[in-house]
Nucleic acid binder design. Structure first.
Length: 558
RNA sequence: GCCCGAGUAGCUCAGGGGAUAGAGCAGCGGCCUUCUAAUCCGCUGGUCGGGGGUUCGAAUCCCUCCUCGGGCACCA
């Protein structure tokens, strides 16, 4: 039995009690939280529902708890109900009822943990969105890992998600970029304010391959050619880096196409119709202060050129038009100044800033002793980090901290293959469990046993460590739903560490395969062996499902 | 100055109205003739930054102060 199922039982019992007039309640709460108590003395699961409903029901918490406890005691699968403290209801399950979960998980396979709490929402998740003028670097790394993990979480909870990358390919920076490439092409130093780094020389080489005569052309002619080829090549490299990092984007939107397609002008017109645009001092302004921004923002400068914000506006309206109910932005703390204007923009566009737009601000990360990349310039390149630390270690580490805590990654730790390194701890648990299963098979233990029941007897999974492991496995779907709802992938990582610990502890005490006697004789395969194999494989499944949510591999051997 | 975020064990950090505040590392001490010891078991370790408030109950919510990090463009 999972906590969700138990929660449903508590709810129905509550409804029955209300219907029978034992409890004076008009409404039954949607959510009855059932939690694993910290202390095992408090049963398998506990709920504080009696404390929460005591006031509306006009009863003392313990009295209400008593009413519910009597009814709960009659429910199937529940072996004991106790009232404790101010009015907690502590519930103990039948061993068989708890153990049944092992089989349910194996049968649900990769769908175990998936839930429908976000069904019906269509989410646009924008993250990374690095400039196409250079390689991805440490500043993008955390958002790539976190954004992709969040995307997986949201999908697992039933949402439709589009991972989107916004390419800032308009504006002056592209010409600066091209000038840097041209300078390298001619063997000159990059101009003041240009882009350093050897990658510019490599891009120049690519330009030369496509246009061997480029050096002979005059600069005004050569500039757009160099710009386009270098841009294309740089984006190709960025995509490759992202793929190496296991991050996939569904849509790349180019800022330039917003200009060229006229969407920018349309956006200004639309916002003007909505009554939020105003001409002042020769410029065109969006009155974002109407919606809580601390100052109005210019859309079209006095010289007639649109601002970056105008493109943002057009882009937002474009996303809106594409039908996304929620637009999520993942931004670094260095962009926190954008929150006010983006929210105000959403409001000006007619959206509800509580539900239709969400801006997640994350603190910055650093890596102790990371070397600036000569190749990539004055930055720490993501490619180098991947090569140095590995995708799994990086993604797991970045995935295990809340976005709003600043982190300083210790490379020695990420490279270490010990208990200190959480990613190895979790992956090792998975590999170990896979090995245990292989060993069990080799000794004739199969999940499909000789009997009709497949040799699975849930009631045999009654060892203390088994109860503990089953309880952890049971928490997974609730955890996924909650992590998705809170947009906090790190909860998955923390959960996996707990689960791995529960597995290791179980493994140390409970043999799966039959043991060998002192005289070297192998004991016969029993239903206990088979049942434990189910539990082992259920753990493999949940570890794998959880690691997959983080975009981290689950090796079968280590 | 204004706006975000953080402050929890020696260190790195979880926990964000519920029961005795947790984990890993570090320190001390135990388990390998049987499925992976990259594991497990025990002990030690706390003014949850300070002060007020809200309530049956506060690390958690509110106010205030202190310290640290980040941000405050007709840049892209």
């Amino acid at each position: 039995m999972t906590p969700e199922e138990l929660s449903a039982i508590v709810k129905s019992v509550l409804a029955e009690a209300a219907a029978a007039g034992d409890v004076a309640l008009d409404t039954i709460p949607d959510e009855v939280r059932v939690e694993r108590p910290k202390s095992r003395a408090h049963g398998d699961w506990a709920t504080n529902i009696a404390l929460q409903l005591a006031k509306p029901a006009g009863m003392k918490p313990r009295e209400l708890a008593e009413v519910l406890a009597v009814r709960l005691n009659e429910q199937q699968g529940i072996s004991a109900v106790e009232i404790a403290g101010p009015g907690f209801i502590n519930i103990t399950l039948d061993a068989a009822s708890a153990g049944q979960l092992a089989r349910a998980i194996v049968e649900a396979a990769e769908t175990y943990g998936q839930n429908q709490t976000l069904a019906g929402s269509s989410i646009n998740l924008e993250f990374v969105s690095a400039n196409p003028t250079g390689p991805l670097h440490i500043g993008h790394t955390r958002w790539a890992a976190l954004g992709d993990a969040l995307s997986r979480l949201l999908r697992a909870s039933g949402a439709e998600v589009t991972n989107e990358y916004y390419i800032n390919d308009a504006g002056n920076q592209m010409n600066t970029f091209a000038e840097s490439v041209l300078a390298r092409l001619h063997g000159d130093e990059v101009p003041e304010g240009g882009y350093p780094g050897e990658y510019i020389s490599e891009l120049a080489q690519t330009v030369l391959e496509h246009h061997p005569d480029i050096k002979d052309q005059d600069r005004t002619h050569a500039l757009p050619i160099a710009r386009e080829i270098a841009y294309e090549e740089q984006m190709r490299r960025i995509r490759t880096t992202l793929e190496n990092f296991g991050v996939h984007f569904d849509v790349f939107t180019s800022e330039r196409t917003l200009h060229e397609s006229g969407k920018l002008d349309d956006a200004v017109a639309t916002l003007r119709e909505q009554g939020h645009v105003e001409d002042r001092d020769g410029a065109v302004w969006l009155r974002t202060t109407d919606s809580g921004d601390d100052k109005d923002r210019v859309l079209i400068k006095a010289d007639g050129e649109p601002t970056y914000f105008a493109a943002d506006a057009a882009y937002y309206l474009d996303k809106r038009q594409r039908g996304f109910t929620e637009k999520i932005y993942l931004l670094g703390a260095d962009h926190h100044g954008y929150v006010g204007r983006l929210k105000a923009l959403a409001a000006c566009a007619g959206d509800d800033t509580e539900h239709n737009i969400e801006i997640l601000i994350g603190q910055l990360m650093s890596v102790k002793g990371a070397k600036l990349s000569k190749r990539a310039g004055n930055i720490i390149a993501l490619d180098d980090l991947i090569e140095w630390l590995g995708t799994d270690a990086l993604r797991y580490t970045l995935g295990r901290y809340p976005a709003d805590s600043a982190i300083d990654v210790d490379p020695e730790l990420l490279r270490s293959k010990t208990n200190d390194n959480p990613v190895f701890y979790v992956q090792y648990a998975h590999a170990r469990a896979c090995n245990a299963a292989r060993n069990a098979h080799a000794q004739g233990v199969e999940r499909t046993g000789p009997d009709d029941g497949g040799g699975f007897d849930a009631g045999l999974l009654s060892h203390e460590r088994e109860e503990e492991l089953l309880a952890h496995l049971a928490k997974f779907p609730t955890l996924v739903a909650r992590a998705a709802q809170l947009r906090e992938p790190h909860r998955v990582a923390r959960y996996l560490e707990d689960l791995a610990a529960a597995y290791h502890a179980w493994y140390a005490k409970c043999r799966i395969a039959p043991s060998v006697t002192e005289s070297g004789e192998r004991q016969p395969v029993t239903d206990l062996n088979r049942s434990r194999l189910w539990l082992n494989d259920a753990t493999v499944q949940v570890l794998r499902n959880g690691l997959d949510l983080l975009g981290v591999s689950a090796p079968e051997r280590m």
